[in-house]
Design a binder for these strands. Structure first.
Lengths: 251, 251
DNA sequence: CCAAAAGTGTTAATATTACACCCATGA
DNA sequence: TCATGGGTGTAATATTAACACTTTTGG
């Protein structure tokens, strides 16, 4: 029996019924904010990486597990941003055709039930991610400003995640999770411009961000680039974490 | 058979298993922020008003229903603020004693299972609420700064709700839901001081709040009060709603 | 007519914005 | 040596914070 058929038949013995976790995984690359999407066996539309919650598993552990499966990353910044529980949201989730084509007998399966999905967004370092498609799906980055057609309400989920992320920018430092350990000021600047979706004066930006005390200039500079070599910077982890807790106004 | 015994036995036929909704209901009175708490049949500790989610009911509808049951109010401002799903959170929720005393046979009941609770907070007009205890519990207001011992994680829920409410103050107007239709400037001022938990210069506050354009001074004044009679004000509903959508910076 | 609270105005301090200039680099 | 992008400074402007004064009212 296929692995999928087993999930349809016996998944309810391992997972909580009616409950799923979906992850909007944000990465920053080529001056664009991107999300990691799957092309799943059961739909032509793209889906968010998601999974179910083990009967004795905490929600954050479930989200962490999904993330680990898809990106290979541990220790990722995760934030629960909204629950999607409309009774109608998954009306036509499995077309009979697709089930037939995959040789699935879904009759009476728990997977046909209504699902409440808990949305998490993750901030990950793009270059460290090696998208891991499994047997049933492919996995790739998509720019948030140019998304493909998304499965049921997954497009809405991305919109909402982005909204919450943008709000949190005003209160919390961001970047430790999206950028490599060492980065340049222009990189950080462009990241903020992208997240806010508006231009920010680079000189004023630099002054402000340095004034927060969460960033440290390193003596080293980038080598082998055209024009003037930019300094490398890194986050001061202690101060960064403190600012995460206490809040911080930037812009 | 008692109504409670029926819930234990047959609730799973009407409600989604493992899933509940809890409401942190905020009211403002005597210059204090208060929450509505129940004293339930199954514990000496106070509990938040909560309920279950009907199999075809949306989450917001479930929360709205709970609110209606407890406060008699419709059209209440509700915001989903966090999900509480730790596997350990309800370890000792029913002591055997209490079940026995109430003549409940809970063996094998769905209510003993693990529950994931979706937290909503509500903003209501204190004076309009007529706390409605049901057969099994009493219902009363408690100051958030002087709470009684709370059931399992319900104290944490209040803390988190307050945190989110405070954050939202920076982005969204608040007060339409917490104050009576017509109110005085000192009332509004004290409400903001209470919510922010810090003193605000009353003169600067008035200028700022008026500058937002969401408030309107009325020609009438309060009658029969000591000292100078304050004007009455009211929210400009259209502008208020617009600010709710678009965001708004106050302080 | 006095004490208490409401309403309005002014000024100093601070933060934000909009710039201009110099520097380093590789082509 | 020049085009390009990185790094630093400064003046104009807007916003915020800290105040003082007048008005109204009931006792």
């Amino acid at each position: 029996m296929s692995e999928l058929q087993t999930l349809f038949d016996n998944g309810h013995q391992h997972y909580l019924p009616h409950l799923s976790v979906d992850c909007v995984i944000f990465g920053f690359h080529d001056n664009e904010l991107k999300v990691l999407l799957l092309e799943s066996w059961y739909t032509k539309d793209k889906v968010l990486p998601g999974g179910f919650v083990g009967q004795q598993e905490s929600l954050i552990d479930a989200a962490t597990r999904v993330l680990k499966e898809r990106t290979g990353l541990n220790n990722v910044f995760l934030s629960q941003f909204e629950v999607f529980g409309d009774p109608q949201r998954e009306q036509h989730k499995f077309s009979g055709n697709v089930l037939q084509q995959n040789g699935i007998d879904a009759a009476g399966s728990w997977l046909l039930d209504r699902f409440i999905s808990i949305g998490y967004y993750a901030l990950v370092e793009y270059s460290k991610v090696h998208p891991q498609p499994d047997a049933a799906s492919t996995c790739a980055w998509w720019p948030v400003n140019d998304l493909p057609t998304m499965y049921i309400d997954h497009g809405l989920m991305i919109t909402k995640a982005l909204e919450k992320l943008r709000q949190s920018l005003h209160f919390q430092p961001v970047g430790l999770n999206l950028l490599p350990k060492k980065f340049t000021m222009p990189q950080l600047h462009r990241m903020y411009e992208t997240l806010f979706g508006m231009p920010l004066d680079r000189r004023n930006f630099q002054r402000k961000i340095m004034a927060t005390g969460i960033i440290q200039q390193l003596p080293e500079k980038v080598k082998g680039v055209a024009y003037k070599a930019p300094h490398l910077y890194q986050f001061k982890t202690r101060q960064y974490q403190k600012a995460l807790q206490a809040g911080l106004f930037l812009l």
